[in-house]
Write a protein that binds this DNA or RNA. Structure first.
Length: 423
RNA sequence: GGAGAGGUGACAGAGUGGUCGAAUGUGCGUGAUUGGAAAUCACGUGUAUCCGCAAGGGUACCGGGGGUUCGAAUCCCCCCCUCUCCGCCA
């Protein structure tokens, strides 16, 4: 959510932001609602003031005196009026709130112009994509793949997109998770093991609701949502809290399985490990002082990048253009790993600065030392990293001529041997 | 799941229809006292929102929502959470 004051004082800034993100939002409608909400609020407050003054006077009168009775009669009318106007105000306020939720976050000045994913800027490329085997094949075509990554039985037991990981497959997942968590820990992120179901208030605070309601799995009869990313429970950890300024920045990381319905995304790009309904991911999260958030974004991205570097995987960094930025983000980098068999880039991390956008919805603040007043923190998050696509790249890029897969040196202590075999 | 108790400011804890945004204590801040400290004393110490250039003023908030009433922290209804006991169980 945006600062309502910003909207009032500089509607043109918001208008420009909407244009840069290529969104279609009725800004004038929001402004009109804002004006009428404020007018109604003043009216109601004036009436309530009247009521309050009368109450104070009546408290001093002996009950049952003619004066008292007259006053009661008089205030009945005001009371009825308050009730009516209050009802209207509430209605307007709800409309206003809903309208405010349709306003996107402002993109940072450094975000490039552009509408489509093709216009994202290639910010950096690491590693040589030609150095990996030209004979590599898509991971699902590797002989024996389905023994370690059993989609068929997963589909039987649950549904499409819920594979079993078996033997060396399961072991490699565990090795990656533990490696990521250990590395993130060394980088200063405190490990958290959060709930994997959240309530509606949490999903709203991070922006999954109302926009992406159909993308989450819901439970019955308790209305919980299976987390689509650890970002949701993690960000909400400090919801409605005021932190000490000296506590900032806070770095946290968490592994959770992630659940996504991916409604409407069937078609290409969904083969093998590319897109699943349940997958494992380690998420990095930061709560920082507003003055440092862009510096922190760069550090966050580098933390995620270093994981790919240590695994020896070629990757590139994209700086997202305005049109591909996302509703809540002010600036975002995507990390894409090279998948030698599919000959394409796969997104494995998305590092974003939300500035105060999430913090305002979630009411996460800190007490500023100089003024003693609460201010909104800035929140950032990024994957560090999503497992299945890293796995896909590893299987494809490190495939040996004998059909085994060479395990990166950093993973050997976790995996226990140098090669993964499909036998 | 059943029975009971309870949710008040940073914390503890009063308050059972009106003068209560809320006693008191602790904590915290500023000052006095001291060579310095402790102790003591004085004053101050919530959040949000609206109006206003500002000074300042208004309104709301006692777990959440609804209701009764001229008036609700206080009464009624629903929900959430915590604690104790019982049951069940990894």
């Amino acid at each position: 959510m945006l600062d309502p004051k910003l909207l009032r004082d500089s509607p043109d800034l918001v208008r420009a932001a909407i244009a840069k993100k290529h969104l279609d939002v009725d800004l004038d409608g929001v402004l009109a609602l804002d004006a009428s909400w404020r007018a109604q609020l003043q009216e109601v407050e004036q009436l309530r003031g009247q009521q309050k003054a009368a109450n104070n006077a009546m408290a001093k009168l002996p009950k049952g005196t003619p004066e008292f009775v007259a006053k009661v009669q008089e205030m009945k009318a005001v009371s009825a009026q308050v009730k009516e106007r209050e009802g209207q105000l509430k209605e307007t306020e709800e409309k206003w709130r809903q309208a405010m939720l349709t306003l996107p976050n402002l993109p940072h000045a450094s975000v490039p112009e552009g509408k489509t994913p093709e216009e994202n800027q290639v910010y950096a490329t690491h590693g040589d994509i030609n150095a990996v085997s030209p004979d590599a094949k898509p991971h699902w075509e590797i002989p024996g793949f389905s023994r370690l990554f059993d989609f068929e039985r997963g589909a039987k037991v649950t549904g499409a997109g819920f594979p079993f990981y078996v033997g060396d497959g399961a072991k490699l997942v565990r090795a990656l998770l533990q490696f990521f968590l250990d590395e993130d820990g060394k980088a200063g992120y405190v490990e958290v093991n959060p709930p994997v179901f959240v309530n509606a208030a949490s999903a709203t605070a991070t922006g999954q609701l109302p926009d992406k309601e159909g993308q989450m799995y819901e439970t019955v009869p308790d209305k919980f949502y299976a987390v689509p990313t650890a970002e949701v429970p993690l960000t909400n950890f400090f919801r409605d809290e005021i932190l000490e300024e000296s506590a900032l920045p806070v770095y946290r990381c968490a592994y959770t399985p992630c659940f996504r319905r991916e409604a409407g995304s069937y078609g290409k790009d969904v083969r093998g490990l590319n897109r699943l309904h349940q997958f494992d991911k380690v998420e990095l999260l930061k709560w920082v002082h507003p003055s440092t958030s862009y510096e922190e974004l760069d550090k966050l991205r580098l933390d995620a990048e270093s994981l790919l570097q240590k695994l020896g995987l070629p990757y590139r960094v994209l700086l997202m253009c305005g049109g591909d930025l996302g509703f809540a983000q002010a600036k975002k980098y995507d990390l894409e790993v090279w998948s030698a068999g599919q000959k394409r880039w796969l997104e494995v991390s998305s590092c974003s600065n939300f500035e105060s956008f999430q913090a305002r919805r979630a009411q996460i603040r800190f007490r500023a030392k100089d003024t003693g007043k609460p201010e909104l923190v800035h929140t950032l998050n990024g994957s560090g990293l999503a497992i299945p696509r890293v796995l896909a790249a590893l299987l494809e890029n490190n495939l040996q001529s004998d059909g085994s897969v060479k395990v990166p040196a950093v993973l050997v202590p976790y995996f226990g041997k140098d090669y993964l075999t499909f036998a």
